[in-house]
Amino acid sequence: MIMQKTLNLQLGLPKSEFTVKKILKQGVIKVGDVLLLIEDNNGIVIEYSCPINGINFYPLIKENDRINSGQSIYTYEITIDTNVKSYVDDKIWDLAIATNAVFKGLLGSMGQSGQIASRTVKLKTELNVKNGIERLLDDISNSFQSLDENDGLQDGDVVVVAEKPYAVAQNRLLPIKYIYDRDPKKMIESDRKEYLKEVSLLLDSPMEEEDLILADAYTDDPELGMMCTMGAYNHNLLAHLTAKKIREKTGKSVDVVISDTDTGIDVRKMIIGCITLGATPIGATKGLSLYECMRAACAAEFGRGSKYRIPIIICKPAERCRNRIDMGEHRGYDGKLKYSIEGKIAFD
């Protein structure tokens, strides 16, 4: 791909004036080639060298012209690798989609949106997190009984559950010193990877670098003292098991998103392989696109919180978005959501 650009004179102070004495080169130019001989107001002749590579360099000026610093002096062309351009375009769109998910999620939390999260229902409940995953799944699926007819669970709803309860239920806990004394969210990547080797030896289930970004303080445990969570294990499977248990207990087919407030932005580390803003969907069932997961996670983020004891948010979709293929099913791969496996964020 060929792109035409303009080369400006970068010499002296703004508005400095020069006289063009001689135009030396045009056509194919390399960095360092002398383009012009120009004379300043003190009569000093200066060789002006090209700062870039390019082709089809053609002067916009002629000899004896008076020119200013910052003035356009040449047009030229550069060749852009179409693969690079496509990659850059994709990343710009990924960022735009993540940004849109935040704003649409905010509107959804206010009851003013559409698609996968037109409004939200806050579910204030105490989940039993100290007796394993099965007990946690029972508590989640039983918690919908307190809702009235208007807010009650319906087929096609999206249930967003905070990530931390799963981590606690899986006993992925360590003493608080592991994030207070050496905070992994304030480490450079190489140090964080070394720290991962140390911390991984302390847990019974596998850990990834992204789990250190999800690490968070946990309430003071009367038996264990102040602890921290180290991210749950196998979020996609947990989301499927949650949806399955909800269907068993309520008869409703829903999709489940497990999300967290962390995005990795502060350490320039993407948790699921693409930029997420406001909140990150860590795991989900198969009925949602990655964008819909992001949108639901953001809608939930504006409504829940550990201080308010709201670990579950129901996203109520627009009616046309209720019937989804593979709703509640396993996503097809274990672990966290992965952009590299999904292949895209939104629909083509």
Rank of each mutant, 00 (worst) to 15 (best):
V121H: 14
V121D: 15
K122P: 02
L123F: 08
L123Y: 03
K124Y: 06
K124M: 06
K124I: 08
T125E: 15
T125Y: 04
T125S: 13
E126S: 13
E126Q: 15
E126H: 11
L127E: 05
N128P: 03
N128R: 15
N128I: 13
N128C: 04
V129D: 00
V129N: 04
K130T: 09
K130V: 03
K130L: 13
N131I: 02
N131C: 09
N131K: 15
N131H: 15
N131L: 07
N131V: 08
G132V: 04
G132I: 06
G132M: 03
I133H: 02
I133D: 09
E134N: 10
E134C: 06
E134P: 00
E134V: 03
E134H: 09
R135A: 03
R135K: 13
R135H: 11
R135Y: 03
L136V: 00
L136S: 00
L137Y: 03
L137N: 07
D139L: 07
D139G: 01
I140L: 05
I140H: 06
I140G: 05
I140P: 09
S141L: 06
S141V: 05
S141R: 03
S141K: 09
N142Q: 02
N142H: 12
N142C: 01
S143V: 07
S143M: 04
S143K: 01
F144T: 13
Q145D: 15
Q145L: 08
Q145E: 15
Q145A: 13
S146K: 14
S146P: 02
S146Y: 00
L147W: 07
L147H: 01
L147T: 10
D148M: 06
D148Q: 01
D148A: 01
D148H: 05
E149L: 12
E149P: 04
N150V: 08
N150A: 14
D151E: 14
D151G: 15
D151A: 10
D151W: 07
G152I: 02
G152C: 02
G152E: 14
G152M: 05
L153E: 04
Q154T: 02
Q154A: 09
D155T: 11
D155V: 06
D155H: 12
G156T: 14
G156Y: 01
G156N: 07
G156I: 08
G156F: 06
G156P: 15
D157M: 07
D157R: 11
D157G: 08
V158R: 04
V158K: 12
V158H: 05
V159G: 10
V159P: 08
V159W: 03
V159E: 01
V159F: 11
V161Y: 09
V161T: 05
V161S: 09
V161D: 04
V161C: 08
A162D: 11
A162I: 02
A162T: 13
A162Q: 12
A162N: 15
E163R: 00
E163V: 00
E163G: 05
E163I: 04
K164S: 12
K164D: 13
K164N: 10
Y166D: 10
